[in-house]
Simulated assay, not measured.
Amino acid sequence: MFLLVYIDDILITGNNESAISNLLINLNSQFSMKHLGPASQFFGISIQSTKDTYFLSQSAYALSILQQTNLAKCNSLSNPSVTKQPSNFKPDNTISDATVYRRITRGLQYLTITRPDIAHSVNNLAQHMHDPAPVHLYLLKPLLRYIKGTINFGLPIIKSKLQLRTFSDANWAGDPITKKSTTGFCTFLGENLVSWTVKKQTTVSRSSTESEYRALAAATADIIWMRRLIADFNISHNQPISIYCDNTSAIALANNPVFHVRTKHIEIDQRLLLLGCAGVLPARRLLSWRPGKFPPLCILIVLVFAQFFLLFFPLAVPFFYFFLISSSSDFYISGSALLWISDQEIKALASPF
């Protein structure tokens, strides 16, 4: 049984109905509470459940954002962003000033909890909230029109093997002004998306290999945290974790330590990826996975809400605290290398270099 508490809202899940009933009886005897039945809404997130399937969406919240800008009946678009900024454009009164821009952009940041498809576009718009230019007001409208056509999109959660895998990518020098790259990665637990990040890198990368390698390091740090998190749900994960990368140079850099003498400008990321590497094996020798007991499907919903609380409600951390327990873990980079990381080496990642 798992209990999620934020202020006066409680979400309970588990596979023992009697234990849940006893807990509700004990809570009602001590506090004034109202039992709302099976979860259908939580912090504006709709939870639709069928047999072996859940669907998380924010369609009502997305509609409220469109109504604030009078775009509830607008024509939809198939792309959330403009691939090339226009040199000349007509001013649009739909988003009139910077105040409206900030309010709508903040609302879109909350919408990304169940809409990873707009995460990159919202990230680009949020970088200019302090002083939005007319072009940024112009670029916000296509995103809202895309949301109009995809208002029913959300996160499906289905029953599948509980095996972690991560996809990493980077947009090299994507910022037209600072020339900084953007890191992007997403983590799946089986067939379910449970974690994703889009973030501008802190320094300028001198090559696409460097930007991709930094994205790999960020994805590795996230997957270590995720593996420890699911360990608290009694989900053992002893098989290698797949980290997929589409840059052959970054894969070769992770697989061949001889190259690292010439890449000291990314030494910290190199140590994060390879500090615990005891050996490198071809990806074809990946160990097979032995399935164990399947936990309650609702646990996947709690994992999504864990990301949501830590990102948007830091004050909820004392109520939603996970004691991280390290156990054996393995990682491999698809295409070239299989990196083996043990208990002691994972603990070394947390210690100063």
Rank of each mutant, 00 (worst) to 15 (best):
I235N: 05
Q239H: 11
L143Y: 07
Y61P: 09
F305M: 04
Y101E: 01
L229Y: 01
S351N: 09
I266R: 01
C298T: 15
T99E: 13
K34I: 10
F308C: 07
N70S: 07
H265F: 15
T105A: 14
K141N: 06
P132V: 01
R284A: 12
S78H: 09
G190K: 03
L125T: 03
I346C: 10
A133R: 02
Y61Q: 05
H237C: 13
L137D: 05
C277P: 11
A217Q: 06
F312D: 04
H120G: 00
N75V: 08
S249A: 07
I266C: 02
L300K: 13
R103W: 05
R290H: 09
D330M: 10
M226D: 01
I25F: 09
F233Y: 15
I157V: 05
F308Y: 11
S242C: 15
F331R: 15
D343G: 03
S121T: 06
R115C: 09
L229A: 02
A218D: 14
N28Y: 06
L111A: 05
I113W: 03
G279C: 00
P80Y: 04
T99D: 11
N238S: 13
P318G: 10
L297V: 08
G37I: 13
L324Y: 08
Y332T: 01
A283M: 10
G107F: 07
V317Y: 13
R227Q: 06
K159W: 02
H265D: 15
Q67L: 09
N238W: 12
F259H: 12
D169L: 04
H120M: 11
R115T: 02
V5H: 08
P156K: 01
W340L: 04
F89A: 06
T248H: 10
S328T: 08
L139G: 00
L3E: 10
F153Q: 01
N192P: 07
L139Q: 14
V317K: 14
F233P: 04
S342G: 14
P352G: 02
K34T: 12
N88K: 14
S78G: 15
V5I: 15
A219T: 08
A283H: 02
C277H: 09
R106Q: 13
H128Q: 11
N15R: 13
L272N: 10
I301A: 01
D246Y: 02
A350V: 06
W225F: 14
T150Q: 06
